[in-house]
Amino acid sequence: MDTNVTGADARNLAMTRRIPAPPAQVFEAWTQPDRIKQWFGPYGMTTPEAEVDLCPGGFHRTLMRDADGKEYPNLMAIDEVAAPHRLVLRVVDDSCGPLVGATGTLNFEAEGEGTRLSVIWRHPTEAMRAAHEEMGFVKGWGETLDKLTAHVLASPTPCPGAAPPAPEHGWLHRLLGEWRYETECSMGPDKPMERATGTERVRSLGGYWVIGASEGEMPGGAMARWTISMGFDPVAKRFRGTFIGSMMPHMFVYDGRLEEDGHTLTLDTEGPAMSGQGMARYRDVVEMRGEDERVLTSQVLGEDGSWTAFMTSVFRRIG
């Protein structure tokens, strides 16, 4: 999940996304009807209609359509415009569900060469906030921001034959930023758990790839560096990636899928067996536990066909 349900105010829901594009470009994607129609809505939704009267007292109207043809009108009043850094929308009727009076504030803050987009929904009552969450705030807004990210990262001059970034590329960009990890690793039966710490920096490469560069301790105390690349193949509809590190000559090649829960990425690979003899099958499971935390669980396939976890790393955002 790329969300933060605020604790200070029980009537608020919030979400943040880091997008490697300038605020003006991201703001335009939210406010230009022709662009809104290209990305707006969760996975599987299209938006055949969009109108925007971009001024205080104006409106922001969309019509979404699902794969079965069911339509979802969405009319909001515009309470505030401060292009390209702030847009405040207010629900004015029940076409969006029981949310009349709720306001959504979108802040487009420059962060390096990109944008930190924060979405804060304020509700008149705690009951409305709970209803909004029950309607699928986390999943719906998370997927919508994935599609927005993919849209703004599309190159105006793509390589011949290259497909534009898919929503799954947008999902991978939830990982952008600076992280600190804490690892626990099993070193074998009847041996104590080993612990290690380090840092990771994840950046975007062309909108199609995210690259994570890590440095820190290995279980046992040795220092190491490693790099992970991760992308999405829109033809095979599979996540692809690699892992290389200073501690070994083997390159791990990932093949993976995003689980139905929308926040768990399962990656399968093959590498040297821990026994030192032959090869073994491994599985890394990446679970997003919020905007600022994710957990990586590494597993190995045993001779009996069962998976055994041998390492868990908790990543917490530091930037």
Rank of each mutant, 00 (worst) to 15 (best):
S204K: 11
A83P: 15
E184R: 02
G114A: 05
D292I: 03
A154E: 12
P160Q: 02
A162R: 08
R18K: 05
W171E: 12
A130T: 05
G142M: 13
W39A: 13
E126N: 02
T297D: 09
C185T: 04
M218A: 01
G101L: 14
R317V: 04
G231D: 06
Y208C: 06
G302P: 11
T144V: 01
D146W: 08
R129E: 13
Y72I: 07
G216V: 10
Q25Y: 01
K147T: 12
C55H: 11
V286G: 03
H132A: 12
V314S: 06
D284A: 15
T312F: 00
R86Q: 12
L54K: 08
M230A: 02
V91Q: 15
D255G: 06
A21Q: 09
T312D: 00
P158A: 11
T183C: 01
V314L: 01
K147R: 15
R86L: 10
G305A: 04
L205T: 10
F27T: 08
E215S: 14
R257M: 09
T31F: 00
R294L: 12
P167I: 09
P23F: 12
L89N: 09
L258R: 10
R11T: 15
M135T: 09
G221D: 00
L75W: 09
L267E: 12
G319Y: 04
E71S: 08
V88G: 13
V138Q: 12
G44P: 04
R240L: 14
A280L: 10
W39Y: 08
Q25F: 01
P33Q: 04
A280Y: 13
P33Y: 02
P272Q: 06
T308G: 07
S186R: 11
Q299S: 01
M248D: 03
T31M: 04
A110W: 01
W171F: 15
P124Q: 07
A236F: 00
L301A: 11
C96L: 13
A21G: 09
A24F: 03
T308D: 10
V138Y: 03
T6I: 15
E287A: 13
Q25G: 00
E184H: 00
L172Y: 07
G177F: 02
A236Y: 02
D53P: 01
R122M: 08
K37S: 14
F232W: 02
E291V: 03
Y282A: 09
H173V: 12
Y43A: 07
D255A: 02
A150H: 02
R18W: 06
P48T: 07
N12I: 15
D79A: 15
S204H: 11
D146F: 12
L301Q: 14
E215A: 13
R283H: 10
A130Q: 07
Q25L: 07
M248Q: 03
V235S: 11
V202M: 11
K139E: 15
W39T: 10
G69S: 05
E49L: 07
I228M: 01
L153Q: 13
P124G: 09
V202R: 05
D93C: 08
T125L: 09
Y208G: 06
W179Q: 02
